[in-house]
Design a protein around this nucleic acid. Structure first.
Length: 208
DNA sequence: TGCCAGGCCCTCTTTAGGGCCTT
């Protein structure tokens, strides 16, 4: 059975290209429809946290000062996820920080990201919005902790991913919803979802 | 010290503009 790693960063801002750094990372491993392992750590990149970020996340300068160096944490989380395919909610954000923080430790990402937000936009176009918190409420999934903390957000993104995989299995009579299919779905127009999944089902050995 | 993004997606579109989503 495929293992997938769902990750979430808390950061000092929106852009690593403008000096923003990660303050916390979490990764949860999903296998066979359930979470089988978890990683979470605050990380000290030696930068100040803007007040509005502390307001948003609850993460303070004092908390980060006591945390392990960012480089150590990134080596650890990179080892933890290995080559497993990655998933994040709005992966364009987390992938930029993942790549930027790995670059600080002279490592490169070896696997692809899938985006739970892009999949949700196609699968649940009628949802009131596609923010993680709104989708959790929309799908009646449990809130596992404080929003905007890495482990809670990663757990809830994982829960949303499993919910969407179940919906895809039910809607299209699929046996499996591999990462490869999620990446195909996130690239098609929402009107093309049926065609995309049917084509995949017909060509995939595991789903026939 | 503070400065600040970028990919997707829709439409009043494609030689563009603006909202969504992440922190």
């Amino acid at each position: 059975m495929e293992v997938v790693a769902v990750i979430d960063f808390e950061t000092t801002g929106l852009s690593p290209d403008y000096g923003d750094r990660a303050t916390e990372i979490a990764a949860v491993l999903i296998e066979d429809g359930q979470v089988v392992d978890r990683f979470q750590s605050l990380m000290n990149a030696g930068v100040r946290i803007p007040a509005f970020i502390t307001e948003l996340t609850g993460i303070t300068d004092a908390m980060v000062r006591k945390a392990p160096p960012a480089a150590d944490v990134m080596r650890d989380v990179s080892d933890f996820v290995g080559d497993y395919p990655l998933v994040a909610h709005n992966a364009s954000f987390d992938s930029r920080f993942w790549d930027a923080e790995l670059k600080h430790v002279h490592r490169k990402r070896r696997q692809e990201f899938a985006c739970s937000m892009l999949v949700a936009r196609r699968l649940f176009p009628q949802a009131p919005s596609h923010k993680l918190g709104v989708l959790i409420e929309y799908a009646k999934l449990p809130v596992t902790g404080r929003y905007h903390r890495a482990l809670a957000d990663a757990e809830m993104a994982a829960s949303l991913l499993l919910h969407m995989e179940e919906e895809l299995r039910r809607r299209y009579q699929l046996r499996d919803v591999p990462h490869e299919l999620l990446r195909k779905i996130q690239k098609v127009q929402k009107q093309q979802l049926d065609t995309c999944v049917e084509r995949y089902r017909l060509t995939s050995v595991t789903n026939r």
